[in-house]
Design a binder for these strands. Structure first.
Lengths: 484, 484
DNA sequence: CGGACTCGGTCAAAGGTCTT
DNA sequence: GAAGACCTTTGACCGAGTCC
């Protein structure tokens, strides 16, 4: 570099360096470079070619110089010696009279005199920089935790294999059938089973207590369905592609379903498409959603929080090349949660209307019903937390001190007959309370699923996770437990 | 290299500038002014320092910048480093915790963190060209907009002034009164007015069309209330401190209210306290929540999205020195949304039970009712979007093609008398549909607000933003419009 | 036309690597 | 651990298009 103006700091006086007995390197600070002629070991004649290449000789040991280093023409040896000495703050001592000859042959015989000659030749310790990063290409994986992107991608790939063999590669929308309610439920069931399989491929998940595993699987399963369907629908416009190759058009016949589809397209598919989300990012998002420490009734929320932390750091590092990308991805989660809730409401409605048979797995995972084994150990863990009756099944919060006696209550101001209709056809679990309000069919109730054009709203409470404690152990095992 | 200039600062004892052992430690100099601010703060009076006037600081290492390079103001060193890294497709690895400090002195100590910071500062791979062909697309825009942390902090401070004079500094919980329903509503009203004032101090907000301003104010007002109360309650345990100095104890008499309080404490206050959230971070979070592009009926969602983008990048930059902090902060938003919805349900319930008079402002902003002027221009903009009947008022989505005729429908299987009771006492807006389900009072309905111990769930639809178009213009101006 | 900007490239002199 | 031959990275400086 050319900023060697620092060499201009002149202190006239002392080249007569006094030989202080102090043996720290501090003493060299006062040394000033001597005129080169005076210092050259081979001063005068310089037989062959000193004048042409003045920089060819090391001004410390007269070896061949490799350039100027730290302010003085020097060889690699003296360069390295000076750097090591300064970096490590070495304190040398001369065993003789500090008048040792320093040349190519004898330069290693006295470090004290060699270093002193470095300073005299003009080397400055300020020119030695801080230690830098290593150059070697050691590949060190993720230093944090055990969660890795490759593992997440593998888990994802393994659950997609089944899918790809079914769906094939035919992006032709026109070839696909429009899904009816039963198709949607069937697809959801498939996807939920895949979600369980996905989770089981994550070691961090398998190490959790079984009740926590169940809680996590139930907590945000709806969001996983929505995220999955949004991802699958990325290549298309105005349609949602289900896992079983059915589609839901935005302007389909079943209006309430199409409304959810429209929100998926507008609030999720479109921004995800604009971001051009990668598989890696999807995998991380999925894990971030899955390992939700706020999930009610968790025995060990801190463990879950740590896994989520690893996942979000993984996503951060996977996206750091684009400013703001990480934030934009995480900011997809609130609308995802919102859309997922709306979908659950639709499902609740469908079940109550008897439009389709809602599988017990869907009931347990999406509707938060079914036999409650999860949360059995919620006792002290959920102490201050949980609380909150949590309407709308937000995050599957269950009131842990709520009533155990729950009954179905259903009513429609428009058609009271509907109230009791579907209830008989489904299993009503003991101690289960589900109340639902149906929208008023006011204009065109021609479509079976759509009693009204306005919003269809369903209230969906959750089971009490604490009530399992009082349940007889002989009760049937819920479907999710059988999966695990 | 500029280490030569280091010679000017006379070193003390340690010439062997060893690595500071702390250089990988967290350093929270979060008050470091942003480069843009630094420029703006010293606008005019710098005639004496021409060299420092036009030049800013490198946004990566704070060395003197030589201009904008690849999208970020940077020094020649970071410029060259970025170019080499991109050209050679280097993949660096941090030997530490990926939180290395990157400044003028230490920028060469971790290439991973340096490159990461280059991206964070706004450098883009695409700006690195391989050959000598100039791509004419210069003037890439400002990169980041005009939103600044100082402005956000000012807006925050100005709305807190009123507050601090009221609340004073008495952390003695015992001295405060337990809030009743009316106190809670009163506090909410105060805070909502402060929210409006806060928004009006943000230039980006003021530049939006009036309908969009109203939409934004309504969209996430409940979350702002919850975030504010959580922040205010940070120093306390087991109580929630309202803005008007009342408190809500977790084990208070009004159980449903206390349940919300418990969720606030557990899901929001506790993690926020563990993070030790700063004012700056709160300010950014508030803006991120506020500028929600998914807000229904927005005339110009892209403008809102850009502001939110700026806000989240600001938060990212304010937190980048602590690994994972940005993600943890953003991951507070889903539970915040969830708790906010539950609070709105409680409010809905309170109003229906006639427990307290719910101000029209609360109705408009929190319950999404009242005169609908917002969304009047929703016509083409909300085309594909919105859709979705959106139960539970998720993000205030309103069905834009839904029915305009909405009626109250209410039912309780336990106490039918309650169904019609409160409805008479409240104003039923025209074309309004509100259906609410009340929990079954099964065990101890002794508390007025708490009909049941189980979850209290309220269904809360929103008004149709599109219906305003058909409304006569002579209708009364809603309270929020008067504020603006 | 000319100065401000921001690309690309250069290469002395830093750094690190690795065998002896 | 030190020495030093050998290779990589850094960044100050410069030229060249482009746009005011």
């Amino acid at each position: 570099m050319r900023i060697h103006r620092a060499g201009l700091h002149q202190d006239t006086a002392s080249y007569g360096m006094e030989l202080e007995p102090s043996y720290t390197m501090l003493e060299f600070d006062s040394l000033r470079p001597l005129p080169e002629e005076a210092e050259l070991v081979v001063p005068g004649p310089a037989p062959s070619l000193p004048p042409s290449s003045g920089s060819s000789l090391c001004s410390i040991c007269a070896d061949k110089a490799t350039g100027k280093h730290y302010g003085a023409a020097s060889c690699d040896g003296c360069k390295g010696f000076f750097r090591r000495s300064v970096r490590k703050n070495h304190a040398y001592t001369c065993r003789f009279n500090r008048q040792c000859v320093v040349d190519k042959d004898k330069r290693n015989q006295c470090r004290y005199c060699r270093l002193r000659k470095c300073f005299r030749a003009g080397m400055r310790k300020e020119a030695v920089q801080n230690e830098r990063d290593r150059i070697s290409c050691r590949r060190d994986g993720q230093g944090l935790g055990t969660l890795s992107i490759s593992m997440l991608l593998q888990a994802e790939a393994s659950t997609h294999q089944l899918l790809s063999s079914v769906g094939g590669i035919h992006c032709d929308t026109g070839m696909k059938k429009v899904a009816h309610v039963g198709d949607v439920c069937e697809s959801m069931k498939q996807q939920l089973l895949l979600l369980v399989e996905w989770a089981k491929r994550i070691p961090e998940f398998c190490e959790l207590p079984v009740d926590d595993r169940v809680s996590l699987l139930r907590a945000h399963s709806a969001e996983h369905l929505i995220l999955g369907v949004a991802r699958r629908s990325l290549p298309y416009n105005d349609i949602i592609l289900l896992g079983n190759d059915f589609i839901i058009p935005v302007n389909g016949p079943e209006m309430e379903v199409s409304k959810v589809a429209a929100r998926i397209l507008e609030e999720l598919v479109r921004p995800l498409r604009e971001l051009d989300v990668t598989d890696m990012e999807f995998a991380c998002l999925k894990a971030i959603i899955f390992f939700a420490p706020d999930c009610p009734g968790l025995e060990n929320p801190q463990a879950v929080r740590q896994v989520r932390f690893q996942a979000q750091v993984l996503l951060d590092e996977a996206t750091y090349e684009q400013r703001g990308r990480f934030g934009e991805l995480l900011l997809m989660l609130p609308p995802l949660q919102s859309v997922a809730w709306q979908m659950v409401e639709q499902l609740q409605l469908v079940r109550l209307l008897g439009e389709a048979s809602v599988d017990t797995l869907l009931q347990e995972m999406l509707l938060g019903e079914g036999v409650a084994r999860a949360g059995a150990a919620a006792g002290p863990g959920a102490s201050a937390g949980g609380g909150a009756a949590t309407g709308q099944g937000a995050q599957l919060k269950g009131p842990e001190q709520g009533s155990n006696t729950e009954v179905f209550s259903f009513m429609s101001s428009g058609d009271p007959a509907m109230a009791c209709g579907p209830l008989g056809a489904q299993e009503v679990l003991p101690n289960q309370f589900i109340s639902v309000i149906l929208p008023v069919p006011n204009s065109l109730p021609d479509l079976p699923l759509v009693p009204t054009q306005t919003g269809t709203e369903v209230y969906r409470p959750r089971q009490d996770p604490g009530m399992a404690q009082e349940m007889p152990s002989s009760m049937p095992i819920p479907p999710m437990h059988r999966c695990l």
